[in-house]
């Protein structure tokens, strides 16, 4: 682990967040495909919406996975952390049953709900590759 990584682990509040300057890619650079988001939608409809609501807008017992509250919670967080959170805790009745590729598909669907444009390459399932992308709710400045 790099010295910077070690420092990040010991400073509360640093873990999981990343500055835009250190990132080679943004979620706004076409990091998933339409097909992948559709696969993710199928998974979400089957496994997520019963608690998180239609369109993952949130329900009484589960937070929204898109929109204002989601954005303020996950802004700047690495997609690897977000994917880990999904993969290890969801779906709530069968946590750990989503594979890494399936988790990436669900993540792609969530990005599509946030109107983040698709591209030509699928969102990777590999944690190391996802760690190169941070969630940003707003498009980059032209």
């Amino acid at each position: 682990m790099s010295r910077a990584g070690l420092a990040c682990l010991v400073v509360a509040g640093c873990v999981g967040a990343a500055s835009a300057q250190t990132l080679p890619r943004s979620v706004w650079n076409g990091v998933y495909t339409v097909d992948q988001a559709k696969k993710g939608e199928a998974l979400a409809v089957a496994q997520c919406v019963s608690c998180h609501g239609d369109g993952l807008r949130g329900g009484e017992a589960a937070p929204p996975l898109t929109g204002d509250l989601f954005n303020s919670t996950w802004e700047g967080v690495l997609l690897s952390d977000l994917a880990d959170r999904i993969r290890t805790t969801m779906p709530i009745d069968r946590p750990g049953t989503l594979s890494r590729p399936q988790t990436a598909d669900v993540l792609a669907y969530m990005l599509s709900l946030s109107k983040i444009p698709a591209g030509t390459l699928s969102l990777p399932a590999d944690a190391g590759a996802l760690a190169q992308i941070a969630y940003r709710s707003y498009p980059p400045q032209p």
């Binding site: 369109g55 993952l56 954005n71 946030s114």
Partner: peptide
């Protein structure tokens, strides 16, 4: 919209609309 690559299994019939945001802002 182009046909879905994979239909949303059991979907109620409509795609979920994105949140009503303006450039990510409420």
């Amino acid at each position: 919209a182009p046909p879905a690559a994979l239909p949303a299994a059991g979907a109620a019939g409509g795609e979920a609309a994105p949140p009503v945001l303006v450039q990510g802002l409420p």
